[in-house]
């Protein structure tokens, strides 16, 4: 597929995520036990949960929980990558060494443990995915900076800038268009997209953990549902002995994860070199 197709796919996925977040209801609909675990034929388009509430609302609320924090984390990582690449092009050894040292320290930290600590530190009334997403982004940023710096290094670092200067390009054009736009873009956009996906999976993992422990979620208020609720509701259908007809929830949960995966791949592919 060409870049334009990937661009359309990426924009489509992002559009779905944000329009879902925008349309998310503040509270779930009223219970209707007659529709318990009803399929998509009765409760259009995704079916209903045990209490007869539409799964569509789960999907929308889940999108609302992850959309902004995931995009923010992705942007933070992408900007950190741009910064790391530009620093290498400027060619200041002391700054390079500092960044590398910082990266090694950050890289040594167990990311999931740090995020769990952040989750536990946040007061229950202020629960949100955003602080954890930012913590994740900060921990991922040195890796992105390092990779972007490697790309800049392969360009020849300051030699590349010198060559472009000799071609008559202004400093702004060299750094913003040639270094960032043409060369760092594929790397930093992919890094940002991967972080976006990681934050979505992080939210699902944390919410699933809370669900299994019977605790309030770390990432959203009790009035909201996450995509983890769909998976938790749906996985029971995998065991016939339980006679739990919730496969529509499982399919919806997996489809949403697939959509996030597709979004990540298409964002990365649309930004590749040309």
């Amino acid at each position: 597929m060409n870049r334009r197709t990937w661009l359309i796919l990426a924009l489509g996925c992002l559009g779905l995520l944000f329009s879902g977040a925008w349309m998310a209801p503040e509270h779930l609909s009223a219970m209707d036990l007659r529709l318990s675990l009803a399929g998509p034929d009765l409760v259009w388009p995704f079916g209903a949960d045990v209490k007869g509430r539409p799964l569509r609302e789960y999907a929308l609320q889940g999108a609302e929980v992850v959309a902004l924090p995931a995009i923010t984390a992705g942007l933070v990582v992408a900007l950190a990558g741009v910064f790391g690449g530009l620093l290498r092009c400027v060619g200041t050894e002391s700054v390079d060494a500092t960044i590398q040292g910082l990266g090694e320290v950050m890289g040594a930290l167990p990311r999931m443990v740090v995020v769990l600590v952040v989750a536990l530190v946040i007061p229950r009334d202020s629960r949100s995915l955003m602080p954890m997403a930012l913590a994740w982004a900060v921990l991922a940023a040195p890796g992105a900076m390092d990779e972007a710096a490697s790309v800049a290094e392969r360009l020849g670092g300051s030699r590349f800038v010198e060559a472009l200067r000799a071609h008559g390009y202004s400093a702004t054009r060299i750094y913003l268009v040639h270094v960032v736009g043409f060369n760092l873009r594929p790397v930093v956009v992919r890094q940002g997209a991967e972080t976006l996906m990681q934050v979505v999976f992080l939210e699902i993992a944390l919410s699933y953990l809370a669900l299994m422990e019977g605790r309030p979620s770390f990432t959203h208020p009790d009035s909201s549902r996450s995509w983890a609720d769909l998976l938790q509701l749906g996985y029971k259908s995998l065991f016939p002995s339980l006679r739990y007809d919730s496969e529509h929830a499982l399919w919806l949960g997996l489809s949403l994860l697939g959509l996030v995966g597709l979004m990540t791949v298409s964002i990365g592919r649309m930004a590749r070199a040309r």
Partner: peptide
């Protein structure tokens, strides 16, 4: 420039 790798932009 001396090395063609510096003259050519690898991203284009």
């Amino acid at each position: 420039p001396q090395a063609a790798s510096s003259a050519l932009n690898p991203g284009r």
